[in-house]
């Protein structure tokens, strides 16, 4: 039982990170129907901004996180403007290839500028404390990752549900043409979506840095793919779906490693994804839309 509870804690921290990245995926998909494969790499950029903010500028972790989020928000908007906007009216597969191109570009630009080796996140940024609760070990960074993820999700939920921008975002994702007729600036709304999504990814990047101590230029690929799976699991385009999908993914991986064979972890994750797609293609939270003729 003790071990099981420990595994749940492990799964929740991992899931929080996946959920944050998945949110960005899902928001972008919801609004322009683009699988933004570069999203994991934005997380990497965020992690590096956080790293440099901590080491070169000597800021504390919260400032580093804010800096990463701001930088990546700008970055996300720029990427959308330069690479995705010209393709908004062409086929989705062309946009997908562009996203792959952007992803490669970010990865190898980072290797070119910073070298391929990993960089060590300074320990001093987040002094480690362990709390033991009857044999369970909970670290302050577990709490940090979980709480910041939840806070960020709540803020996001607020923005989407209660602000004008959020309304505009929902409107554009529902029906772009109609949104234009209602006087919503589609370009602006899409830019804001990218800014928010990228900022969340950046926050996740800094958390990964804190949590796993290292950052490297290719660190975004695997979490990016996993988060993407998480987004689909929850129902791509649906914000609460991404959160739940992220946590499900984190728990699932932890349980497979903990109670099954860790080597099949990825296979099981993908297998569950396929099952979900086959049973309910729109994901756990998705609504089945009937085919329109």
């Amino acid at each position: 039982m003790l071990e099981f509870t420990q595994q749940i804690i492990n799964g929740l921290s991992l899931g929080a990170i996946y959920a944050l990245i998945a949110l960005g995926y899902t928001m972008v998909y919801g609004i322009i129907k683009l699988i933004n494969f570069a999203h994991g790499d934005i997380m990497m950029v965020g992690a590096f901004v956080g790293y440099f903010s901590l080491t070169l500028l000597g800021t504390n972790i919260f400032v580093a996180m804010l800096a990463a989020m701001l930088t990546c928000a700008v970055f996300g908007v720029l990427i959308e403007k330069i690479a995705y906007r010209p393709l908004r009216n062409s086929t989705r597969i062309a946009a997908l290839i562009t996203a792959i191109g952007v992803s490669l570009f970010l990865e190898y630009m980072a290797i070119f500028l910073l070298g391929p080796s990993q960089k060590v996140f300074p320990d001093s940024a987040f002094p480690l404390k362990a709390y033991t609760l009857g044999g369970l070990s909970i670290l302050n960074k577990d709490v940090f990752v979980f709480v910041s993820a939840v806070v960020l999700m709540l803020i996001l939920q607020y923005i989407i549900k209660w602000t004008k921008t959020g309304k505009a975002m929902r409107a554009v994702s529902l029906d772009r043409e109609a949104a234009v007729l209602m006087g919503i600036s589609v370009d602006k709304t899409i830019s804001i979506t990218f800014a928010i999504g990228s900022a969340l990814a950046a926050a996740a990047g800094v958390m990964v840095g804190v949590y796993y101590n290292t950052v490297n230029p290719l660190m975004g690929i695997i979490p990016g793919l996993k988060a993407f799976v998480a987004a689909v699991l929850g129902g791509i385009g649906i914000i609460p779906g991404a959160m739940v999908g992220g946590f499900v993914m984190g728990l699932l991986e932890t349980m497979v490693s903990g109670y099954g064979n860790s080597l099949y972890r990825d296979a099981v994750a993908f297998g569950v994804l396929i099952l979900i797609l086959l049973i309910k293609p729109s994901g756990i939270f998705g609504e089945d839309t009937g085919e329109k003729v």
Partner: peptide, 18 residues
């Protein structure tokens, strides 16, 4: 190498998405 490859991809797609 990979930077150029990525750029070519993006540029071709932007100017000739088909």
């Amino acid at each position: 190498r990979m930077i150029l490859y990525a750029l070519i991809l993006v540029i071709v797609m932007i100017y000739r998405p088909q």
